[in-house]
Design a protein around this nucleic acid. Structure first.
Lengths: 238, 238
DNA sequence: TGTTTCAGTTTGGTATGACAAAAACGCAGA
DNA sequence: TCTGCGTTTTTGTCATACCAAACTGAAACA
């Protein structure tokens, strides 16, 4: 064990363990997918009590570095953008409760998607265009069924996040829908709105087809600003 | 204690505690800034052992919901976008080690800042323009001192994140610089590059002054693409 | 009256031991 | 080779104990 073991009165043994494990996970000493050593083994090799080991493991799990299903050995998690999103989950949930929290995240989403439609208008390939067309068709087919329309609505937006070939973006989309959906799904869902949204999607799609980023951005912003108005009117944040 | 206490064989007592505390923190039963009850008190009110309580508290701390300095009572943390960023820290660090990880995050940054300069070109007010001008002047003054130039470089970009009045954005900027700086600061820093970057900043600023979002975006992309080339050439990701 | 000091009390950090129940393992049998 | 089943590990939890640091309040002091 070459890792230096700093034991100060003002540091916690568990914290040291956590950072040691973090290092070992990053540099590969603890291989991805493999389980951590048994608790008793860890306590012996570091000379700490089981209490400390358990606390450290719990912290690693909460941070998203290992997956600790009850009764199973904790396994080193595959590095992925999903783990990052998951790790912020509880904090973001709290953010959504503070005044203006939803608003700020929603604004960020608008900014993000505005950039995405511009990008799509400039660089979307045949396959992505086809997928958007399909999503649009699904929208239309689901106009009468608000529940299903919501799903196809999400799907349409998701395509936008898939156009740039960056694996982070789809995860961000997933995060947005997860986080904001609770403030979204409780909205009154009259078929009227479905039509409005469908037409908005159509305008966005058209602008992308015409390779007109400015029009695409405008259409997207109109669409999301309108959606935001709905959210705001429903919950009336002061 | 009205919270239902689910004790299944397949659930952990500590996990239940965590979710109970999460709820209580969000709904305000546990007030921000106030310390959690003493461990011994918690164990009595929930009828669990201290081991369980400690594990739960550690998990909450790792998630960023409470701040647990050694030897002090854990206090409920102020909800803020900084806590969210901090919570992902260790996961993101790991992401940066996987192939293409840095690239993906850097691309995301380019996309983000491209959107920001467009926004700045359209909506930047007098004060923001003034601040950018100041940052540019600081750039120039630091041309000979690569260490200081780096700081003023970061400061210039930060202004872009401050133009939209959204408190999330500055935090994102902070996160980017924290995460990517280790892959940035080790780059060779010849004064030559400082001049290149300074001129690039100048072009961006000009385009914003002229209220020309397209030119601003182009200038920004040129600037960051160039910066990325430097990073890539230095570390040669395959 | 405001401040400092100090002893007693609380409280977190850690270690140890114990036990039930689930998971992992190994071996015999099909 | 695959399947069951009993044995061994290993996790989840509890109880207890001790130390040292943080806290508290009262006494001493300026």
């Amino acid at each position: 064990m070459t890792d230096e073991w700093i034991r100060d009165v003002r540091t916690r043994a568990a914290d040291n363990l956590v950072s040691i494990f973090e290092r070992q996970i990053i540099d590969g000493t603890l291989a991805v997918g493999k389980p951590l050593p048994p608790e008793r083994e860890i306590m012996q090799s570091f000379g700490v009590s089981r209490t400390v080991v358990r606390e450290a493991v719990r912290a690693l799990a909460a941070k998203g570095l290992v997956e600790a299903r009850p009764r199973y050995r904790p396994v080193v998690r595959t590095p992925g953008y999903d783990a990052a999103i998951e790790a912020v989950g509880s904090v973001v949930n709290r953010l959504l409760t503070v005044p203006g929290g939803v608003r700020n995240l929603f604004e960020l989403r608008i900014m993000m998607e505005a950039a995405l439609v511009r990008d799509a208008a400039l660089h979307a390939g045949k396959d992505h265009v086809a997928r958007m067309k399909q999503a649009l068709a699904d929208n239309e087919a689901a106009l009468g069924d608000s529940e299903r329309f919501f799903e196809t609505d999400v799907a349409f937006h998701r395509v936008l996040y898939e156009v740039p070939d960056n694996p982070v973006l789809p995860q961000i989309h997933k995060a947005y829908t997860d986080w904001l959906s609770s403030h979204w799904t409780r909205m009154p869902r009259d078929p009227e709105r479905n039509h409005v949204n469908y037409r908005a999607h159509g305008r966005i799609f058209e602008s992308i087809l015409f390779r007109d980023p400015d029009a695409a951005e405008r259409a997207l912003r109109d669409h999301l600003d309108d959606a935001w108005d709905q959210v705001r009117l429903t919950f009336e944040e002061p």
